[in-house]
Design a protein around this nucleic acid. Structure first.
Lengths: 224, 224, 224, 224
DNA sequence: CATGAATGAGACTTCATTCAT
DNA sequence: GATGAATGAAGTCTCATTCAT
């Protein structure tokens, strides 16, 4: 999943023949790279094709138009990220532990999926229908929100979490994670592990019924 | 402060003569409208000029180039928003009250400054230097973060707030508010007042030393 | 090498496909024509493309920008002209004969390469770097000057030419030829052959050690 | 007649009221400066007005259009130069001396009228009628040519000059001078006085009946 | 007389998309 | 399947020129 910095991802062969799926992946990969590195506006088809090491025409062979490329890229990236977060996350563990672990995982994404995250955000916010309406608003987060709400409700049912509006909490929770990642992007010197723990503390104190049980004991608070 | 949806704001007069400041404002206004309604990518100078009811050339009479238009628009909008949030916010009140009031004010922005918020976000995230690097990252939020940290520290000193990483909290807090506004944009049916209170509850429980004192008693929780 | 005056050189076919070199030549050709006929200032890319019978965009497919078009045109034309002058010029002949022959050849260019000469001059004098400085001053003539100086020195060594400043003479000589061509451009009725011979007489009398030997006996002087 | 490097030629007064002629001169002066320093293409009306320290509109008050500005500038400059060359040139002196003196005077122009020369050339070569035809070809030199031919004929009648085509000589002579000035522009290190003498030698040897009498004895030839 | 705001045409350039090869 | 030549629309920006003040 890592990407070499070079223009041509694949070996220098000409007229390389690939299966449909490999090609699509290759193009999506290039789209992510270009969007992440140069911005949505600079992600022209020409640029993407060059990055993928293929011709411009071929892109249109596999995608209806540029919007299609972006949409597919978005979808694929969302799946990738979701899987990365969900991987080896024991959802049957106590809810507070699940939450803390999930925040840590999300923080870890910064190093493993930085480009994907960046591209995902940019495409989400910029992709529009021809008439100017956003093609994807936060509706796209719906699945995520529902999964988180389910988790929160389990916690509430089990008695480990307080009573609160699960939808508002899901949005806040997701926002807190997104901001953490964005903040790290802008301030790469930040100690992400500590940030993640501090964030977990804040959120869990806000959610948990017995906050004292969930506070992270390992990392001493800065003020003391 | 509201804008009519029509293309030509003013009457059909030819060669209307305006002072420098009025024109600049008019153009900035049009830029906000176009960006908010049609997206950053669609906000061409042509489009903005048409929206303002003036000729393309005039835009360049008042702004160095398109980037300048966007930058000025960004700055002006940031000021507008900041003022709107700060207006009649009694910063000397007890910290927890200040926080709850600020969240309510922010929520209120949705109805009064929806376009400004939208445009502000889009421009922030898309404006780049000619070489592709983001022209403004979260660094722009620095002032806001510091103001909020100061508030939090006062609360901690006064004993009304728990001990927590103020920087992480500022980022989370700001993110929670941004997400609230974004969520409302995508789901306009949401009862924002209730959302704001639920959010205040969540955040204050996470922050306050005596959460029971800050929970909003008026609004029954949705989950019963 | 001649060009029809019509706009569209080729038949009305759509999407005519050409090799890279043919296209470049075609565009350069069109650039020469437009510059020569309508002046450097009027030689917009639009105008050039229309003259070549292709789309504007295609020009940028083969040239980096307008400056590049002009630069390439300049280079190509310089080569063309140089070759035309040098062709079947016996450089081993006695120096005075070489000079007279070269002047005649140059005069002949008026009928064969009139446009090229004109375009060459205009581009040389008008092409500037983005910051306004001339991109090519007389430095470009350096090669020519040196070749001529070498010729003059040979004549001096062999005893057929007088002693004189070879650099000044080279500049004067080249200037005399350029003026001849420019004069003919403005006064097309001039008898160029006679002009060339008269010029050769003047120059050779100024250069030669034994002028009487070089005066052209065939053409009677106008005054007598 | 010299120009300060500053933008505003005149004192910083606003709404300065000037007579028609002063204004015209002021604008022409600015046009010369801009054309000479930044090139014909960069000499926009805006640029010229700014240089003159007046408003754009005023230029059109005194000149019909941009072409008119250039044409007037051209005419005025031509007169200036002609006068500068003719000044204290004793036309009754022996012809060969007149010629040598004229060449020296011309060389001197480089230091006194460099801008004027440069602007003159650029305007001459670029100014066109709306349909693309040169507005001024060498026809403009006609007066000069005739004056020089008259001089040459006098020399021939008096027996000091050989027989040659006076028109061809006039063109060559003028070209030699123009090239000298252009060469100096490109190679400012050149010793112009020596160049002028070397040129005079070359031309006079070509023209004079008794060349030995006219060669400049003061300056030793470079090659010894 | 003088200013500079305002316009509109046109310049250069990029880019999504098509299509001959 | 794959290429890249070719197009046309649109975008940014400049500039001569007009005109209200």
């Amino acid at each position: 999943m890592s990407t070499p910095p070079a223009e041509q991802t694949t070996s220098g062969k000409r007229r390389q023949r690939l299966g449909e799926d490999e090609r699509r992946e290759q193009i999506v990969r290039a789209a992510i790279d270009v969007v992440a590195e140069e911005g949505f506006a600079a992600a022209s088809v020409t640029r993407i094709a060059k990055r993928a090491g293929i011709s411009k025409g071929l892109v249109f062979h596999y995608f209806a138009d540029k919007g299609d490329v972006m949409e597919q890229t978005l979808k694929a990236t969302a799946v990738t990220i979701r899987e990365a977060v969900a991987a080896d996350l024991d959802l049957t563990a106590p809810v507070t532990e699940v939450i803390r672990a999930a925040i840590r995982r999300a923080a870890a994404l910064s190093s493993t999926h930085s480009k994907e995250l960046n591209a995902l955000n940019q495409i989400t916010q910029n992709l529009r229908t021809p008439d100017g309406a956003p093609r994807l608003d936060l509706t796209a987060y719906e699945d995520t929100y529902q999964a988180q709400e389910a988790l929160f409700r389990r916690g509430q049912d089990e008695g480990s979490l307080r009573h609160f509006d699960t939808r508002v909490m899901a949005i806040t929770y997701q926002g807190a994670i997104d901001m953490m990642l964005a903040y790290f992007e802008a301030h790469p010197n930040t100690d992400l592990d500590r940030y993640a723990d501090a964030l977990a503390d804040i959120l869990l104190v806000g959610m948990a019924k017995h906050p004292e049980k969930v506070e992270n004991p390992e990392i001493p608070k800065p003020g003391r």
